[in-house]
Design a protein around this nucleic acid. Structure first.
Lengths: 330, 330
DNA sequence: AAAGCTAATCTAAACGTTTAGATTATGTCA
DNA sequence: TGACATAATCTAAACGTTTAGATTAGCTTT
């Protein structure tokens, strides 16, 4: 900018005024500056600008796993709306590891992101500590953390799973195996609660024999499903608490020489774009990924702009049961 | 840092020396500084540091679509290795739109990223222009651009598709429909070239009737596949040039009331983690996503460190044909 | 013609670091 | 004791912006 100013024989203040349109500049100088910028190939340095302004026009997005279609779908729309508002996105993955999460958040805070959108990993206190000494606006997605006072947009997990399990019960299933996400997370707990509530409401006794933990990971879910399938009195249906795990479940079913839905019914949280075209066509709970991303992005923009000074609120969205062909009457 | 210096009754230079370990500090002062940092909750400001040092410890990653599992797989390993070297990743998506791509690259350049990893969208000149007036180290992935002198890690697309088509020919197929990616991209062209070469080598006459363009998008591929399927003399096999498109292809097949592989064989570029467990089990060309990400990350790190001053080189990796159950003898 | 406005431009001080080079303290040796 | 080396610490100038407040130029008005 100093070079531009020198070339155009004006002060840096004038160049700045012209570049940002923050103050009127005479046609005369405007021409000279424009020309100087062209010939030098000047680009405003966003780092210096950030330092002075105290704002980076960047928001940090922290998710568990970039390989999970749910997160990428949400990320995609978040990026979209933030980009339209002039914000860039810095994406970090935690692999569900609270230590890594702390590192990533720290990295984002150091880089002075204007806002944070987080799908928290690990137990509630982990995030609480990570966020302790910063006052960066934050919105939580997918999961809620108890100790944290921040906006959140989440699903009515309990209700959604309740509906799905109810559907299975309606088909006559009584022994329904449940592959749970990590009970350390709100998401894992609330979905499990939906399962339990549905059974309870139907008067079916709960059995720990039917619940296994897959930690939202395909590999772990495979093992978990295997444990359920080798039981002498095998479940007639399996429900998986997310998309990654249902693949492990299906693999276990195949490896046990069983077929879905002929030998066993399967349902799961999270939809796939290919679910209606590859067999078995999975019956799933579809999350409103677009709405989640849209809402999260709007919330963070409002908080950043300071337009929203109200106490934090939680937006709860509903899942939708997509009945296809992976469940049979029992 | 000034506060810390004041509290510890030392100069900022000493604080800086302590924080970065760049110069010896006496135990006495070390204690005082440490204590001051604790009580103030000081964190080094990465923005100010970047401004002074001229390095952001950040690399920009530009991909077409974060929703595409191929890109997310690669992104995942790139993030992993870069994070281990202390670099953060700024992820941008272009939606295959050269204009958006230019915007995103500009944004990254403004933010002074230390390096750029790009899966180019649009025609070669688009990227050439975007990269014109910057000397940021760059490595290209997935696609090559002619005018650009940068390291690249790509697949031997032609060879890979050649193998896959050969496999179909070996099964007796003669009318093989091809759903191509955008011919504006190197990837689209090189894969198509593999198709043509394979037919030619087998003495099968080429026919434009059998080639349709799906632009690497599910929706477009659906339409493209439809056009092939309504032909009076329908192809006996369909090959899709990427993962997103094969879903569109399968949907078209279903909507036409056909079944794969009974009525028509299907194969495609890119593997799915669920391909061996959902029917039809797709026969695909698997890309070495891990190697691609690893190599790309290493290349950019070397270039950034200035360790590698050699002329740019292209790393060409091989795809692997995963034969499953979506192709039948004809 | 002097005074008073207004609009355009400029000067200089921030923002929070890093770092060369100056300064000070400590110890060694003749 | 004084000269000299060495190690630790400090001072101050950058990095490339923004912006409050000062200055200047060009008009009106009296």
């Amino acid at each position: 900018m100093l070079d531009v100013a020198a070339t155009a024989r004006v002060s840096v203040a004038t160049v700045s005024a012209f570049v940002n349109g923050t103050a009127p500049v005479s046609t005369e100088l405007r021409g000279r500056i424009e020309h100087a910028i062209q010939s030098i190939g000047y680009k405003r340095n966003a780092i210096a600008r950030s330092l002075k302004m105290g704002t980076t026009k960047t928001v940090g997005l922290v998710i568990a796993d970039i390989t999970n279609p749910f997160f990428t779908d949400v990320t995609s729309v978040i990026q979209d709306v933030l980009h339209r508002s002039g914000y860039a996105v810095m994406l970090c993955c935690t692999d569900e590891d609270p230590v890594l999460q702390d590192e990533q958040i720290s990295l984002l805070v150091d880089r002075m992101v204007d806002g944070l959108i987080i799908a928290p990993a690990g137990d509630d206190h982990a995030l609480e500590r990570s966020l302790a000494k910063t006052d960066i606006p934050t919105v939580l997605i997918d999961r809620i953390c108890n100790g944290i006072d921040a906006d959140a947009v989440v699903l009515d997990n309990q209700r959604a799973v309740h509906d799905a399990i109810n559907y299975l019960i309606g088909l006559g299933h009584r022994r329904i195996g449940y592959i749970s996400g990590s009970p350390d997370t709100w998401t894992g707990r609330s979905r499990l609660a939906g399962y339990k509530a549905a059974l309870e409401a139907a008067g079916i006794p709960l059995s720990d024999e039917l619940i296994r933990f897959g930690n939202f990971r395909e590999r772990d879910a495979y093992n978990a499903a295997m444990q359920l399938l080798v039981q002498p009195e095998r479940p007639s249906a399996l429900f998986s608490a997310n998309n990654l795990m249902v693949i492990g479940v299906m693999r276990a079913i195949r490896d046990m020489g069983l077929r879905c839905p002929d030998d066993i019914s399967v349902s799961s949280f999270d939809d796939f774009p290919w679910a209606d075209v590859f067999q078995p066509n999975l019956t799933v709970i579809a999350q409103p990924v677009h709405a989640i991303g849209e809402q999260a992005a709007q919330l963070i923009l409002e908080r950043i702009a300071g337009r929203n000074e109200q106490p934090s609120r939680q937006i709860v969205l509903a899942g939708r049961l997509m009945i296809r062909a992976s469940c049979r009457p029992c």
